[in-house]
Nucleic acid binder design. Structure first.
Lengths: 350, 350
DNA sequence: TTTGGCACTCGGGGGCGATGAGTGCTAAAG
DNA sequence: CTTTAGCACTCATCGCCCCCGAGTGCCAAA
């Protein structure tokens, strides 16, 4: 079913008006803003039809219309113009990208804050590595006679360390042996490949080394697990309160709680190439059923991706947000991508 | 000026009633709850006097009284009973402390969440090292011919690393040389001692090594700076909305914004031995003038301290909160303290 | 000094009518 | 068949008024 040109113009006018004012749009307003040269009565007839099609809603009988989620969806898919970033927007995003920090997680945290300030919406960001990562190298550094530092380098160039303390003393040769053993047997193994392997080798090189190996390897597994886990970083949650749809505490509180406790990403990192928009009921989490998400994906290095996005009322300036987020995401990809290793110390720390 | 015994009882009854109900307390209620065997008229006279002393306030003429900040202060200082933790409370705190994570920052984040859930107030936590820390050891691990990992160990047993990539190649001997040089000249130096030193030594061992040294040393300085900086971690900000005093958005929004953007600690880490309570206007930040803070201090290792606390309305159950927080703080101190090194990998990461 | 009594204050809530934006429908015009 | 002007109707919002009741301050008596 294809909408007539005029219906499209009307729907678009309603959406864009409503995005700005947050108030139901009446037929008269549309005559003024849509550019159509017809009377308000005609508009009213069209609006009634659009409502029958499920694209508009009426909060109550004597009010104007607001777009339904389906209406927004059509707007986003077919009617929306591309938004051009202003010089100022590009500039502040560029500044955020060129902060003197090079650790992924810090960039993400900062990025979230900046986007939140820019858009006045809460942001979320997460980085996730595919399960193909391995430890490419172990190093053991003796600290005292009964403590040493493990440093592991992963296949996607992340370095992690841990200080291990032992109940017993350890000679330099023992440490050396352990080091060789680790590098020989536990490198280039994905997380799944590690567990059974562990048992076998540990049996071979038994004795004192047993406990140590399992200690180090379990640390390595932690690191790999952490790389794969998609921890959500949020920022700017209180900005929600500045928008009229969250003025009532009943609507704001559950969503804010959800956001602030949003530990693991429940949603898949967007399948599309660039930006993904989820409108109201399209969201899986029930706390988001009345809200929308705009998110953009970025790719870093070999097998790490991430998403950065904003959460807000269904009435959002999708065009503008999509433009900003994808610009930002592209910046992140350029900055950390290329498979090269610029200086990503600690992707997805914390 | 010392209050009469009866005035104390009345003040206490008012505070404790108001803490529970969040509504102004009338003379009749006090007769019922205070245990005093006098009429409401007598209470009214006493209340009028307490109001003159600035310990009570009247929201409007025909309402009961509520405690003023000064009234709370007297309550906290003189009238408050020690709160005993219930078995359940101790248990959930203990559980939080014995989580299988041993990195300070993760413990802090988790701790914040747990306390926030327990108390229904937003929490904040921060760790800060005194400026006396130094790098006690450098290690350089070659990765490829033009990249290596720096691992530094600080005097308070924190390990940090960074992957450095170079435009030029580097031989193993050069790296070895660099390593020796670093350990000889840049260990056991506090942050302030580092800058001038840098220049001199860099001049000595000039040539190729110059750029490298400054690269590594500036990383070391970052690490030391980070140890000293008191980054505030917050959790449970939306819990504010569950309390009647923050039902109006005008009151909630500024405070929530303040909390979520609370980057650096503005307040000093509490001078007292255990718990510190800041009531309303006693706070320096203007966003906190209408709210209170209860915080407890913990000590870790040699020269690191931290604070964990909650923010809420002036009407808070100070006794209960103080008990919970100090129990928690003691737990943290026991767990990470003793100058020993249990396994604190990354204090105050992120 | 305490107490009962009493007039007074004032915020909150419910009821009520005016207002006005916006609609749906109808009948006439294009 | 489509568009338009006109009109009756709906209904949320706002201001207004009034009542209610909790709580006070004060006074006079115990």
């Amino acid at each position: 079913m294809e909408l007539s040109e005029r219906k499209k113009k009307i729907l678009r006018a309603i959406v864009e008006n409503y995005i700005q004012t947050a108030e139901p749009v009446g037929s008269k307003t549309i005559v003024e803003t849509s550019g159509l040269d017809v009377s308000s009565a005609t508009i009213r007839n069209e609006m009634a039809e659009l409502e029958n099609l499920g694209l508009l809603e009426q909060p109550h009988t004597s009010a104007g219309r607001i777009p339904s989620p389906a209406g927004y969806r059509i707007y986003v898919n077919e009617l929306m113009d591309e938004h051009r970033l202003t010089m100022q927007e590009t500039q502040s995003i560029n500044e955020a990208l060129h902060l003197k920090i090079h650790q992924m997680d810090q960039v993400l945290t900062e990025a979230g804050k900046v986007i939140s300030q820019l858009t006045k919406y809460p942001t979320f960001a997460l980085t996730q590595a595919s399960g193909k990562n391995t430890i490419s190298r172990f190093d053991l550094l003796a600290v005292e006679h009964n403590a040493f530092i493990v440093v592991v380098l992963t296949s996607n160039q992340v370095v992690r360390n841990k200080l291990l303390r032992l109940p017993t003393d350890l000679s330099a040769t023992q440490l050396q042996l352990l080091n060789t053993l680790l590098n020989a047997s536990f490198t280039e193994k994905t997380l799944e490949e590690l567990t059974p392997e562990l048992m076998r080798v540990a049996a071979h090189a038994a004795g004192e080394a047993y406990g140590l190996i399992s200690l180090v390897v379990s640390f390595a597994m932690e690191v790999l697990k952490e790389l794969e886990s998609a921890v959500v970083h949020t920022a700017g949650i209180p900005t929600l309160l500045t928008h009229p749809e969250y003025q009532s505490l009943n609507s704001a509180e559950p969503l804010m709680n959800f956001l602030s406790e949003w530990g693991e990403a429940t949603d898949l990192p967007t399948t599309q190439d660039g930006v993904e928009i989820l409108i109201g009921p399209e969201n899986v989490a029930k706390e988001l059923k009345n809200s929308s998400i705009v998110m953009a994906r970025y790719d870093i290095g070999d097998n790490m991706q991430g998403v950065i996005g904003v959460v807000g009322p269904t009435r959002m300036d999708y065009a503008k947000l999509a433009a900003r987020l994808s610009y930002f995401a592209e910046g992140l990809s350029r900055m950390f991508g290329k498979g090269e290793l610029p200086s990503p110390k600690d992707p997805a720390q914390e």
